[in-house]
């Protein structure tokens, strides 16, 4: 009896991965292609860069975004400095 039971368990274990795989229906990965047909100049360049390599596009993104942030932030900071308020200290208060 115990022998047949252990055979049954072994059979179940053997089938288990198949059941698990069957449970989640496999779907194809979504492939994105940017439409660069009507673009020119820098827009066409970075769209083609996206199509050619997502890695290069990612590298471009992490360089462009902080750089743009620092440049725009510095300009805005200079403009804010023209108002004449103290931009270096603040009293800590929860209140």
């Amino acid at each position: 009896m115990s022998n047949s039971l252990s055979k049954f368990y072994a059979f179940c274990l053997l089938l288990l991965p198949a059941h698990l795989l069957a449970a989640g229906e496999k779907t194809a990965d979504v492939v994105l292609v940017a439409d660069s047909r009507h673009l020119t100049g820098i827009m066409a360049w970075w769209t083609n860069l996206f199509n050619e390599s997502h890695l290069y596009f990612a590298l471009l993104t992490i360089v462009v975004i902080p750089l743009a942030g620092v440049i725009l932030g510095t300009i805005a900071d200079l403009l804010m400095g023209c108002i004449g308020i103290n931009l270096k200290s603040r009293a800590l208060r929860e209140g």
Partner: peptide, 23 residues
């Protein structure tokens, strides 16, 4: 930004336009 752009789900142009107002 790096992980989403590597996965192809970033519209860099839109991010840049928004950044102008956000600054």
């Amino acid at each position: 930004a790096a992980t989403y752009s590597y996965k192809g789900r970033v519209e860099l142009l839109a991010a840049f336009i928004m950044l102008i107002g956000a600054a």
